[in-house]
């Protein structure tokens, strides 16, 4: 009865699961991660039969994951829920990992300190290295707006690091 054979869908899931997970986690935080990842793959599954531009598959999947994460953040903001990554996930037992751990916590806290709009563009442009034109299209914004948001996001992030004494 399924339009996409489960075996093909599983290949797609395995290929893009970490990407979808990572985008949703970095934009929306850990709270509803598993539900949102499932929702994203259901959307992918629903949209797949009509999707024939396989060269743009990753761009399309980024769009789905990003929009689900943004919608979740908006709903969380309406409920006055705080944004926060799960620091329990970044403990590193290796010897000499203290500095790395400190840097990771600093980066995560820096991202947390940003507004949702700024975090989204910084995550997509700098962590996932998506082109600005694609980010603009996926967010329904002009490229100029994305550039401007990215500029303010970088400034705010650098300010945060400076306030923590991490940069001169």
């Amino acid at each position: 009865m399924l339009k996409i054979p489960p075996s093909e869908f599983k290949i797609l899931y395995e290929e893009y699961n970490s990407l979808v997970r990572s985008v949703i986690y970095q934009i929306a935080g850990p709270k509803y991660l598993n539900d949102l990842v499932q929702e994203a793959f259901i959307k992918i599954w629903k949209g797949l039969p009509g999707f024939n531009e396989h060269s743009k598959m990753s761009s399309w999947i980024y769009r789905i994951a990003t929009n689900i994460a943004i919608d979740s953040r908006r709903a969380a903001t309406r409920r006055h829920e705080e944004f926060g990554y799960d620091f329990g996930q970044i403990r590193d037992p290796r010897a000499g990992a203290d500095k790395e751990l400190e840097n990771r916590q600093l980066v995560q806290q820096g991202l947390e300190s940003l507004s949702d709009d700024h975090r989204v563009v910084l995550v997509l442009a700098y962590i996932h290295e998506r082109p600005l034109s694609e980010i603009a299209e996926n967010l329904g914004l002009s490229e100029g707006t994305v550039k401007s948001r990215l500029h303010y996001a970088k400034t705010a992030f650098a300010e945060y690091l400076k306030s923590k004494g991490a940069v001169a």
Binding site: Q89, I90, L106, V107, Q108, I127
Partner: peptide
Amino acid sequence: LQKNQPKAP
């Protein structure tokens, strides 16, 4: 950012 990015469980 890439090296210290938040890692999803």
